[in-house]
Design a protein around this nucleic acid. Structure first.
Lengths: 221, 221
DNA sequence: GTCTATACGGCGATAGAC
DNA sequence: GTCTATCGCCGTATAGAC
């Protein structure tokens, strides 16, 4: 269609600049503390351009939230596929399922990018928001989560279904609190643990969740 | 001092009405989405009265946060005292420590009160807020938490200290996500679990946390 | 002390002109 | 696609009534 390829660096799309600016601001200050003017200023575009591209403020927020959610879902589902393939025809063990859920997010090169750090803080904010949390998280993540629930059920066949759902709830809460990187664990541990160190947190959260699922969901392994 | 006792119901203090209104609004909409005018309207007082009693908006927020934090801290510390007394001279086992942390909050008559429900949602919001979370939670809860960390350390003497702090992080994340009552688990479980059912959640979160600490913190029990 | 009425400077969201 | 104008609400300060 377009022959705009002539321009080697298509000038970092103004639309993308708006998304980036919105992501950075929303993640640090939450939804309501951020204004469209502020986003426009940071993106170096006119105020009204955000509305032109995305509609209302809330729709811009959703667009920000969606953009990287799709990437995360793919990373996790790929990891789950690999874990299931590795143990086939047996179901993947609970350690491997939880690893597939956590590891693609808590380790890897993308952690160095500020955009991803920002996005994680945004997910933390949304997940624990009593008015946005249920709706947005379900909308963007639950199809992926349902595959993990099935894998957990296969790994823990003796579990009562409620225990599996509450187990996922605990895992989700632990992970997203880490995403918030509030610095609280730094203070509590007097510097021994650092909330910026998501890679270091991975092993701890993984071990905790495995132990939690095994105890709460009645593994007889 | 005062002989205002003559009035049987001292008309529900305007100051308290402001706190109640602020709590209800902050907990449902977060900090920035709420205006002082809205709070005053709900409390049926003049706008300026909030400033008169509490100063800046942020100071009102802190007052709301503090009011019930003190009650929670006392409930938990009393429960921990009882658990330690019950197992003396041995240290309280990890099950009992986690029970003392969770049970006073997740069970009891106060759960029927809307004010407490609102407050829990507020704690969920604050704990996962990347800018308020570290500061506010540490300020109001960490002295209490440090006694629990000591009890956990005594119960799990083989644990590495980092593992204990990350274990607490996981427990805190799981609990505060439950506080948010987002309705997400209802959707994910297709009605099998209900996020309003904090009493029902208690046993699941307790079991998960005990298993998590035992695995991640190397109990050899 | 406790409370009300009002005023001020500022900014965000949106509609409509260009 | 871009910008300008408008409108209403925001947090806060203050002067003074009870």
């Amino acid at each position: 269609m377009a022959d705009t390829l002539a321009n080697p660096k298509p000038e970092t799309d103004r639309r993308t600049r708006i998304l980036d600016a919105a992501e950075a601001l929303f993640s640090h200050k939450g939804y309501d503390a951020v204004s469209l003017r502020e986003i426009a200023r940071l993106a170096d575009v006119d105020v009204a351009l955000a509305s032109y591209h995305f509609g209302r403020k809330r729709e811009l927020f959703d667009a920000v939230f969606l953009r990287r959610a799709e990437v995360l879902n793919r990373m996790r589902l790929d990891a789950l596929d690999r874990a299931e393939a590795a143990s086939a025809p047996e179901p993947a063990p609970v350690e491997a399922v939880i690893q597939a859920y956590l590891r693609p997010l808590l380790t890897g090169d993308h952690l160095a990018e500020e955009g991803w750090r920002n996005y994680y803080a945004l997910v933390a904010y949304v997940n624990n928001s009593s008015d946005l949390g249920g709706e947005l998280m379900s909308q963007f993540f639950d199809p992926m989560v349902e595959r993990f629930m099935a894998a957990l059920k296969a790994a823990l066949p003796d579990a009562r279904p409620e225990a599996l759902y509450w187990g996922y709830h605990c895992l989700s809460g632990a992970l997203t609190l880490a995403f918030a990187q509030t610095g609280r664990i730094d203070r509590l541990s007097r510097g021994l643990c650092r909330s910026e160190d998501l890679e270091g947190a991975y092993a701890h959260i993984h071990a905790f969740a495995v132990g939690g699922f095994e105890r709460a969901c009645g593994s007889r392994s």
